[in-house]
Simulated scan of single mutants.
Amino acid sequence: MSEEKKKELFEIQRIYIKDASFEAPNTPNIFYIDWIPTIKLNLNTSANKIKKNIFEIVLKVNLIAKIKEELVFLCDIDQAGIFFIANLSEKRLNHCLYSYCPNILFPYARACISNLISHGSFPQINLAPINFDALYNNHIKLEKEI
């Protein structure tokens, strides 16, 4: 008799802000410069196993706005979640931790960033959706090349 395959399980247990920072060091003078910013976005994801089948995923989002070389603002968000994940193969687990879970967290991080920027009295910046599957697949390809 063959062993029955265990059912794959996934549950969001908690979503929360682990860290948030907003800096606008050149106010109020920056408000009087023509609003033609350059925006730089950096993303990073980390996964930490808390205990069996329980993982904390942290999506770090760093947004830097400049006008010419003048810093307008810097916004950092560590959006986190605790997930119960069981009975996945190692390959599927890694995809879940570094693509699927960050995809769940991103809308929360985007909303937090939008609120911080608007509370800083700057025009709203709506971050476009991110294709975490493509980012994960590119990361896997780069690891294989090394």
Rank of each mutant, 00 (worst) to 15 (best):
N115G: 13
C101P: 04
L105F: 12
I113A: 05
S121W: 06
N87R: 14
E90G: 08
P123L: 00
I130N: 04
E90C: 07
F73G: 07
L88T: 00
A80L: 09
I113S: 04
Q124A: 13
L135P: 01
F106V: 11
P107Q: 01
R92P: 04
I130R: 03
D76Y: 15
R110P: 11
G81V: 14
I85K: 01
A111H: 13
P123D: 00
Y108V: 04
N87K: 13
H139E: 12
E70C: 11
G81F: 15
E70D: 13
G120I: 08
P102S: 00
Y98L: 04
P107C: 03
I85P: 01
S114G: 05
I77C: 03
N103E: 09
P129N: 12
L88K: 07
L71K: 10
L135I: 00
S118D: 03
C96E: 10
K91P: 05
I82C: 14
A134V: 10
P107S: 00
I77K: 01
S99I: 06
D78T: 10
L135F: 01
L93T: 03
S118E: 10
A109N: 02
F106K: 10
L93C: 03
P123M: 00
N126K: 08
N138W: 04
L71M: 07
D78V: 08
D76S: 15
A128M: 15
A134G: 03
F122L: 02
V72Y: 06
F132N: 04
S121C: 07
Y98R: 00
C96H: 08
N115V: 14
I104N: 07
F122G: 00
C96A: 09
S121R: 10
I82R: 12
I104C: 06
A111D: 15
D76N: 15
R110W: 05
G81I: 15
H139G: 12
N115D: 15
R92H: 09
H95W: 03
I113Q: 02
A109W: 01
N138L: 12
A111C: 06
A109G: 06
I130K: 01
A111F: 07
S121V: 11
S121L: 10
